[in-house]
């Protein structure tokens, strides 16, 4: 469908928020705590954080929660009864204040969860989520969305993308999907007709740092490079990068038992953990951190494009910001690009 452009007055945002709440929608929006912005269910417009470049965690948790319970069981002697995922529990959710580099990530997650077998739980959450994203009007050195096919004003994955027109200006609303139109219908008076707006000049400037196609080609011959070892020597092997990433989807399946009853769930995992690939025998195919770091980069920039036709990186820069050892993915990608093979 064609993108519809509307103008939303700066004072109207709060009204829109209230209308969404009145329609019994859960609204997740960025909230500040301990100096970090993160998505939380929000009850009042005033608690939404404004001054942040990027939330610490991506908003993937709304659709791919860190713990997703998918069955309950009850044991009775030798018998067991099980109850599957309760799809009714998935209610309409609005994601408010997402950046374009997050919304693109939902497309990547969608590819992972549906490339072969269809993950209905993921799909149920995605279909019930309305994504109201906001263009970036500022960026920092960690941002590189433009290098991986995105941009600060990208509408990809959004239902409605808002772009703030100037420091104290109104908002351009680009209604991208039918879900977005449904929101407009809820509060049509807030979405004014508008002339075409040059939104680009209001966007943050994120220069292109590398060519991901080139990187992909290079990686095909890069597996045995000594760079992996050099780059990863300072990596501490935590899972911070994976857990803040909008596209990392590795998970573990665990049971939670309470006597005769309990549940089974998937929970986030990270390929950076030393135990991720370890066999019961003790054999570990990726026994050192350099192999695990290589897996992370290769998976995002080589394996995924090849298998799923999507890149596993949106250029949000969260992993670099979160890393306690300052492993900067952008820096590493540039250095891979610079290597002559």
């Amino acid at each position: 469908m064609n993108i519809e452009r509307r103008l939303v007055r700066k004072d109207s945002l709060e009204k829109l928020f209230d209308i969404l709440r009145q329609n019994k929608k859960t609204v997740f929006a960025p909230v500040m705590k301990n100096g970090k912005a993160s998505f939380k269910p929000v009850g009042s417009f005033s608690s939404i954080a404004e001054d942040y470049i990027q939330t610490t965690q991506s908003s993937k948790e709304v659709i791919f929660p860190r713990v997703e319970k998918f069955l309950d069981y009850e044991k009775n002697g030798k018998e067991v009864s099980i109850k599957g995922f309760d799809y009714q529990s998935v209610t309409e959710t609005v994601l408010w204040g997402v950046r374009p580099c997050d919304t693109i990530g939902f497309g990547t997650l969608n590819s992972i969860f549906n490339w072969d077998f269809k993950d209905e739980i993921f799909n149920a959450r995605l279909s019930k989520t309305i994504i109201l994203s906001f263009s970036c009007n500022k960026s920092d050195d960690y941002c590189f969305c433009t290098s991986v096919g995105g941009n600060p004003g990208s509408t990809a994955g959004s239902d409605i993308l808002f772009t703030k027109l100037g420091a104290d200006g109104d908002y351009l609303a680009e209604v991208v999907t039918e879900k977005g139109q449904a929101i407009v219908a809820l509060a049509s008076e807030l979405f004014e007709k508008t002339e075409s707006v040059e939104k680009e000049k209001f966007l943050a400037n994120v220069p292109v740092k590398f060519n991901q196609e080139e990187i992909r080609k290079k990686l095909e011959k890069f597996f045995k490079s000594s760079q992996w070892v050099e780059q990863s020597l300072k990596c501490l092997g935590c899972g911070a990068c994976a857990f803040v990433c909008p596209t990392c989807a590795c998970f573990d399946i665990q049971d939670d038992a309470h006597g005769k009853i309990g549940s089974r769930m998937r929970c986030w995992d990270s390929c950076g953990y030393s135990q991720f690939t370890v066999h019961t025998s003790g054999h570990n195919p990726r026994s050192v951190q350099s192999q695990r770091w290589r897996q992370r980069i290769m998976h995002k920039f080589s394996y995924m494009p090849e298998r799923l036709s999507v890149y596993g990186c949106t250029g949000c820069g969260r992993c670099s910001r979160a890393c306690p050892a300052d492993m900067n993915i952008l820096e590493h990608l540039i250095s891979i690009q610079e290597v002559k093979i």
Binding site: K33, S38, Q57, R66, L236, G237, C238, G239, A240, A242, F243, W268, S270, Y273, Q275, A322, P324, A325
Partner: peptide, 24 residues
């Protein structure tokens, strides 16, 4: 409760050097 168990605390701690942590 916000902790998502990335274990960065454990990784950054010089005294957390166990090859198999109790959580593993």
């Amino acid at each position: 409760s916000p902790c998502f168990k990335c274990y960065a605390c454990r990784a950054a701690c010089p005294m957390c050097y166990c090859s198999r942590c109790t959580v593993d």
